[in-house]
Amino acid sequence: MNVFRLTGDLSHLAAIIILLLKIWKSRSCAGISGKSQILFAVVFTTRYLDLLTSFISLYNTSMKLIYIGCAYATVYLIYVKFRATYDGNHDSFRVEFLVVPVGGLAVLINHNFSLMEILWTFSIYLESVAILPQLFMISKTGEAETITTHYLFCLGLYRALYLLNWIWRYYFEGFLDMIAIFAGLVQTVLYCDFFYLYVTKGGKDRKKVMLP
């Protein structure tokens, strides 16, 4: 555990909590892509199956449980509790265009051809592109609420911090996981356009961030 890994995890946790609280407090999931949230729930479920097979640390287990719990709670709020506020017409990204290629890639390129390992790889690849329905939705409506941009910033920052964590681990531990690094790079690059807008349009008078 190094400082980049820890701040990355906390940034990830902050993103998840921000989104959950935003929906809960405003009693609305307007502007939030339910499809992205379902993909994140799938990501956590397929990645954290090792909860059943191996114990790494109390920190590891509790964070996994929190991530999974929050992911399903978010999906529940969007599709059940506040379903009336869900903007399904603008959430029109075709997720099969992500899930099918990512599934194929996970079967082809993995560390070990076993079910658990393929599902782990699938989750890593899927996570890297799972935000696309959300970004697509924002570009379609042309705007995002400020709190939604904070969510996206924390979520993007988390994988960027993980990149620094992997550089650290390579130098100090000789640890190298090319699948995670490659997917992490893709994931971070997808946020770059958003990062730029978030920083340049930031400020006290900001109400909304427009995406091209």
């Binding site: 990645r47 090792d50 191996s54 790494i56 996994k64 090319m178 995670a180």
Partner: peptide, 10 residues
């Protein structure tokens, strides 16, 4: 090596 160790990251 990554393919032998459990995945200790989130």
């Amino acid at each position: 090596k990554a393919d032998e160790a459990p995945h200790d990251e989130l």
